[in-house]
Amino acid sequence: MNRHATRENALKILFQLDINDKHPEEAIEEQFESLEVDTYLKSLVEGVANYKNTIDEKIAEHMEKWSIDRIASVEKTILRIAVFEISYREDIPVNVAINEAVELANSYGDEKSGKFVNGVLSKIIA
């Protein structure tokens, strides 16, 4: 599985975790019952789940006139993945994390999601 597809799958799993009270490993297993789980997928899901509060604080610090609770779940999950990659994954270039997040936002969010995600992430890295 390529990294883009891995991020898409992480988005789906983390979105479910945001709604349901499950352990990350359980959510991964449910999503991929018959497939071998990619180590990067496991890293993303478990990393975002483990650092969720710290990641949310970082996002909230860089938002103007918004609270993290007002962000739609899709955009919030995409931001969490990108902030995790930027903050905790040295093997992912910052511009790659941002570009991937914007792509996911354009695919899974509404017409303004990509610009919103790009704006928040740009403030975080500034």
Rank of each mutant, 00 (worst) to 15 (best):
N53M: 00
A5H: 02
L79Y: 05
E46Q: 14
W66C: 03
E85G: 01
Y51A: 14
R89N: 03
R80Y: 00
E57V: 07
V120Q: 02
A97F: 14
G119R: 11
L79W: 11
I81P: 06
K58V: 15
R3N: 11
V102W: 12
V48L: 00
L121N: 13
S43T: 15
V45R: 08
L44V: 11
E26A: 03
G114R: 06
K52T: 08
D21Q: 11
Q16K: 15
V37N: 03
I13T: 12
D18N: 10
N95S: 05
A101F: 10
S122N: 09
R80L: 08
Y108L: 07
Q16Y: 12
L44Y: 05
I13V: 10
P93I: 05
D69Q: 11
G109P: 00
E26L: 02
V96C: 03
I124A: 04
A101Y: 11
E25N: 13
I81M: 01
D69T: 15
K115C: 09
E57P: 11
A97Q: 07
I124F: 02
N118C: 05
D69P: 15
I124N: 02
D18M: 08
Y40Q: 04
D21T: 05
M1L: 12
E46I: 09
E57A: 02
A72P: 07
E111I: 08
I71L: 01
L79R: 05
E26R: 15
A97W: 13
P24Q: 10
N99Y: 11
A27N: 05
L41I: 09
N106L: 00
D56L: 13
R89L: 08
Q31L: 05
I125E: 04
